[in-house]
């Protein structure tokens, strides 16, 4: 190994299965991306960084549809997760979203627009201030961010803007799961004549008003976003609320 691990990382490695501990590293991007140092500066400046196999970023290695690339971030193997930032090194707009798992596990599924082949990464900040980074390469033919949204071709979305549908699963292998879709064009602003118009914030709260998760979304999130959350305990309805960058707010109840 080129660089020695710090004492903190060695202590951490001692608690992990050997295979995962072997993959822990503080430098040398495992995805070998030319833009890693820029990404580190932009999102993780000054803080300690660990490439950590416990941060699982799942996405297809080849994207069939660059407008709707499914990404699942699972950092539930880490404890004390404060914040997760998701970015794609080679996208024209690199920042995809941030989420703050307050009373929900650090798990989020969503879809993203990718302009070209790129690493998709999740950096997970734990309570001790360390950023744990995981990621995967996605190959795509591109056009995801500079292609117009389907909504651009019709006027119907204006009547349906921020329309929410969704449900929760309380039984079976996916008990505790919540899935939600919102009608929104999520325009990137990179298509001539169409200004950026996208959801900025979504909050999920339980029946008692306690916040489960806060999600900050940016332009690369796909049109008509679909989110998948995993609740620790499926306990009653969830209220989803939020707004876009034009101030259009929504509030919806997702029944159990």
């Amino acid at each position: 190994m080129k660089y020695p691990l710090t004492i903190a990382a060695i202590a951490l490695a001692a608690l992990m299965p050997p295979a995962e501990a072997a993959a822990l590293r503080e430098s040398g991007d495992p995805l070998d991306s030319a833009r890693w140092s820029e990404m580190q500066k932009a999102f993780l400046a000054g803080a300690p960084v660990l490439f950590d196999p416990r941060v699982k970023v799942v996405a297809p290695s080849t994207a069939e549809n660059p407008m709707q690339v499914p990404v699942t971030v699972d950092a539930t193997a880490l404890s004390g997760v404060a914040e997760v930032v998701v970015f794609a090194d080679f996208n024209p707009i690199v920042q995809v979203l941030r989420f703050f798992p307050e009373d929900a596990p650090a798990f989020l599924g969503f879809r993203v627009k990718l302009q070209q082949s790129t690493p998709v990464r999740a950096a997970v900040r734990t309570a001790d201030g360390v950023w744990h980074v995981g990621g995967t390469w996605v190959n795509t033919v591109g056009g995801g961010c500079t292609a117009p949204s389907a909504a651009g071709g019709s006027k119907e979305w204006q009547q349906r803007l921020n329309e929410v549908s969704g449900r929760q699963w309380s039984e079976g292998p996916n008990a505790g799961r919540l899935r939600m879709r919102i009608v929104h064009p999520m325009d990137t602003g990179l298509v001539a004549g169409t200004p950026a118009f996208f959801l900025e914030e979504i909050n999920f709260a339980d029946a008692s008003g306690k916040r489960l998760m806060r999600v900050q979304t940016y332009e690369p999130v796909s049109e008509n976003p679909v989110f998948t959350l995993q609740r620790a305990t499926a306990d009653g309805p969830v209220e989803a609320s939020g707004r876009d960058n034009n101030g259009n707010a929504f509030k919806a109840r997702i029944a159990q």
Binding site: P60, E64, N65, Q68, R160, V183
Partner: peptide
């Protein structure tokens, strides 16, 4: 199969989530 999931799953999902 992988390509078809991209083509066909979104419509199935829409229905399951009760979306128009």
């Amino acid at each position: 199969y992988r390509r078809s999931v991209g083509h066909l799953f979104p419509a199935a999902e829409l229905q399951a989530l009760g979306a128009k």
